[in-house]
Each structure stands twice: as C-alpha cells, then as structure tokens.
Amino acid sequence: MGIFGKIFQALKKTKDNVSAKMRLLFAKNKLGDEFYDELEEILISSDVSVRTAEEVVEQVKEEAIGNKVKDQQFVTDLLKDILEDTLNAADIPEITYPCVIMFVGVNGVGKTTTIGKVANWFVSQGKSVTVAAADTFRAAAGDQLAVWAERAKVRIVRHEEGSDPSAVIFDAVASAKAKKTDVVLVDTAGRLHVKENLMNELKKMDRVVTREYPEAAFYKFLVLDATTGQNAVNQARVFDEAVELDGIVLTKLDGTAKGGFVFSLCGELGIPVVFAGVGEKMDDLVPFDAEQFVEGFF
C-alpha cells in the first residue's frame, strides 16, 4: 500500500494541519523556549498527550543543534522520524488461525461498526468468520450487529437482550469449534474504564475464551475514537490492565481530528495500532500503516 492510501487521505482532509502550523512557526522566527513551547503546542493541538509532546520536543532539542533548529525541513523530518519510530516501537501481532478477537472500549467509539468491517476484511482474505453479539446491554446492539453480519455474509451467534454476555461467547466458541471457523469476532458492550464492575464482567469474558478455546489464538483489541482527547491514554491503560490488550483499532479518522494520542499508546504503553476506520462503508477499514499515518498527520 503506497503512502497515499486511505489513512493518508482521511487525515489530509483537515486543512488545519501540522505542516501549515509549522510554516507559521518558522515564519515567526522565534528562538529558544518560545520556539519549543509552540512546537509542543502544535503537537498537543492534534491531541498528542501533553507528556509525549514534551518528550518529543525534548528529543528535537537534543538533536537539532545550532543552526539546524532554524531549518524547517530538517526539524519537520526529524519530528516525522521520531514519531514514526514511536509508532513502530510496538509490534503488530501476527494473526494465527483459528483465533478469537474480542473488541472492547468505552461507549460510542464504534465497536459494532468496526466488527462489521473487520468481518468483511477477514472474508476478503478468504477466512471464515463468526461474530458473537456479546453486547447484550445496549438497546438493539444485537440487531445492529446482525445487519453487519448479513452485509459481510458471516454467521452470527446471539442471545436475547439482557442475557449473560459470557454465555454468548461460550456458544459462539462451541459453534466455531464445530464448524471449524477461522475467526470469531466478539462484540462487547461499551463501558467506561472507571466502572469497576463492568471491567470485572470483561475479565470474566476474557477467562471464558481462554478456558473454553485454549487451542485458538486470542487477541484483544481496544477500539478508540480518533476524536478523543487526553483521556484516550487513561482508557488504554485501564483496559490494558484489565485484559492485556494486543492492539488498537482507531476509528473515525475521516473526521477532522487526528488521533495524536496514538503516539503515547505505542510509545508509552507498547500497544500497536492494528486497523484504522476511515468511513462508514464496509470497506472503510484498512490495516494501520505508520508511515502513512505520520505523513497524513503532518
């Protein structure tokens, strides 16, 4: 996939981009702390976490010695390198089959839609897929997933609303074993990471998969909305503590937000971004590409 793929296009839609702000900054010809403060602000204004922005700028300070700091191209390239390295610090897991992928996250980030698209992606790779409607809490979540399952032409296992989500997983796993399905995708109810009883429920679902299907590879992906701000890092940290995340799906990149918090997720927490959602259609999901993301980010 070239640099100018869907991730790049989605990010480039934003006219208020980092490059333009960098041009402005260099035009002002500021020096010293004021320059670095503004550089930091440029990163923060794309939702890079305050801490990561400070660290990145510190690195620029160390490497852009002497007159090089006045060289816009040099500083830009340096920044891009640092940021891309940060993203590559976390390895994207190799998917082996059969496998179970459980999608977790706070309310409204796009878990159900993501599962529809991911199901379609696996089908396009020639894999058989079962989706498990383990969001039994939100009104009509199962119906929503059923529509996506039909679109992607995959099987769905669901119980009635209000039933135990772990029981849905139990059935989905049994059915996947019987039918020798390659991939089981588990939808879970949105939950704020501060709600401990809901996080415990998630841990239980985690245990059910591990216990009932030890021969399958098991991945847990956190779905994050690109519009989120500094709270994204909190979310990732707490979900990671609860169920050990294997990856991130970054959704809604087709808006004007840039999702700059991902640098902290990969760098600080070591969780890689696996997929990116770039629209509402079924094929608007692409494997994440660090180089493309950084180019689009600028």
Binding site: D47, V106, D225, T227, T228, G229, A232, G255, T256, A257
Partner: peptide, 12 residues
C-alpha cells in the same frame, strides 16, 4: 458532545 472529545471539539 462526548465529554472525552479532544482538541477537535472547537471545529465540530
């Protein structure tokens, strides 16, 4: 508006 929205809240 989602209270967790970041810098983009102004554009929205």
């Amino acid at each position: 508006v989602d209270a967790m929205t970041g810098q983009d809240a102004v554009n929205v």
